[in-house]
């Protein structure tokens, strides 16, 4: 097993996340895509930590931080989505284009 395969997998996951982030109409699915991005990052961190820094495993420490921050971010994100939903009765991203030119 080489480092590259992990990195490629993480990159693929990241790209899938990006695709979901940009194309989803449902706001919750956008949040889910963001989770995919963060997890792809976590995969990278773990891989680097394992292959390049097996002694001090700083990458794993980073991963733990990212997980906690991601959880908090998802919570706040869902809260925002809920607030919007309360006001506008929808979670369709295409209905949220009020702040334009």
């Amino acid at each position: 097993m080489q480092l590259e395969y992990f990195l490629l997998l993480a990159a693929a996951l990241f790209c899938i996340g990006i695709y979901g982030l940009i194309t989803s109409r449902n706001a919750v699915r956008v949040l889910m895509s963001i989770e995919l991005l963060l997890n792809a990052v976590n995969l990278n961190l773990m891989a680097f930590s394992n292959y390049l820094d097996a002694q001090e495993i700083k990458g794993q420490v980073f991963t733990v931080f990212v997980l906690t921050v991601a959880a908090a971010e998802a919570a706040v994100g869902l809260a925002i989505v809920l607030t919007i939903y309360r006001n506008r009765d929808t979670v369709d991203m295409e209905q949220f284009n009020l702040l334009k030119w």
């Binding site: 990006i18 982030l21 940009i22 956008v30 991203m93 295409e94 949220f96 284009n97 334009k100």
Partner: peptide, 15 residues
């Protein structure tokens, strides 16, 4: 009109 109001579009431009 490039400021479309779609945050996903902003994300796309960042990307």
């Amino acid at each position: 009109y490039s400021t479309s109001g779609q945050s996903q579009f902003y994300a796309l431009t960042i990307l």
